[in-house]
Nucleic acid binder design. Structure first.
Length: 300
DNA sequence: CGGATTTGACCGCT
DNA sequence: AGCGGTCAAATCCG
């Protein structure tokens, strides 16, 4: 909350500066500062939304109810432990994003570096293209519900990677999205084949904040596996419908149960350290909220 | 050697 | 027609 206030104050300061230097400003400079001001207040508003949603979820948690808060239009909200960590990592220290130019550069290089990889294009063009006679099977676009979360990038280590959310994902595509500065990456559950797990997610950096990922989850996990490769004890597909689930099913509550398992009993994975979950005060989950996918697309 | 990633092509949808 | 999501061969990597 203090952070929201500080952003608002920052915006007010910008307004003041603009006011005082208004007469001598060129139209270009005016436009620039107006942009900055608009962005600052929009940011504050976004974060305020997060705070509100989180308040609701805290109430729900206190009553040991599902950590799901119904938003308008039946969108669901969920807190994921891994994401909390990201929040801490990002906002545990300073709230401003200055002094991060180097990291930004690194991220951009990493993203653009994909194209720099030398590949044998000759084989590619001949191989997978028009020559294939067997028509691909393609499912229709699933109209199931989506859950979109904003996640802070890790400040330490490899900031190029999307934050760990205690599930293992396998990347299956990446696309440049019109009007977006950064490509969108497509992931599906690593255990899709083993357990017919339909979970997918899309990860994309925000245009105006490369340190924040927009993560869109589709489908829910039926595999009940965390972080690492399946183990004999962990790989128990308990869901009775596990084998019958298809992508025609929209999001169900499996995701929540996955998460509840993780929160209550700790992660089965080796890499996840749950110590961060509820540090002394002010629970660190201010950074998730859900939006309706068809509106509020701030990336454009 | 097998699983994960990369990346151009393919295809459904608007 | 073009965008976005997915496929799958090639490639990478442990």
């Amino acid at each position: 909350m203090e952070e929201v206030m500080s952003i608002i104050f920052h915006g007010l300061k910008l307004v003041d500066e603009l006011k005082s230097s208004l007469p001598e400003k060129s139209p270009e400079a005016l436009s620039t500062s107006l942009d900055e001001i608009t962005k600052t207040f929009a940011d504050a508003k976004e974060r305020l939304k997060i705070v509100l949603v989180i308040r609701n979820s805290e109430t729900a948690m206190n009553q040991l109810k599902p950590v799901i808060v119904a938003c308008s239009d039946q969108m669901l909200m969920q807190i994921e432990p891994g994401l909390m960590q990201d929040y801490w990592l990002r906002y545990g220290g300073s709230t401003s994003s200055q002094g991060t130019e180097a990291m930004t550069q690194r991220q951009l290089m990493a993203v653009e570096g994909d194209g720099g990889r030398n590949l044998t294009a000759t084989e590619r063009s001949g191989g997978s293209g028009s020559g294939s006679s067997t028509p691909r099977q393609r499912r229709r676009k699933n109209e199931g519900e989506e859950q979109t979360v904003l996640v802070a990038a890790l400040r330490s280590g490899n900031t190029d990677l999307p934050p760990d959310d205690n599930h293992t994902w396998r990347k299956y595509g990446q696309k440049e999205i019109l009007g977006s500065r950064y490509p969108r990456a497509y992931y599906r559950c690593t255990h899709q084949k083993l357990y017919n797990c339909p979970a997918k997610k899309q990860v994309q950096r925000l245009n105006d904040d490369p340190f924040t990922f927009r993560v869109t989850y589709r489908g829910s996990h039926t595999c009940h596996i965390y972080s690492t490769a399946p183990t004999a004890s962990a790989a128990v597909p308990t869901a009775p419908t596990a084998t019958t689930v298809t992508t025609s099913h929209p999001v169900d509550y499996g995701t929540f149960f996955d998460m509840a398992d993780a929160m209550m009993f700790g992660s089965g994975g080796t890499g996840a350290n749950m110590d961060f979950m509820f540090p002394s005060n002010d629970p660190p989950h201010h950074h998730h909220y859900y939006r309706r996918p068809e509106e509020g697309d701030g990336d454009k």
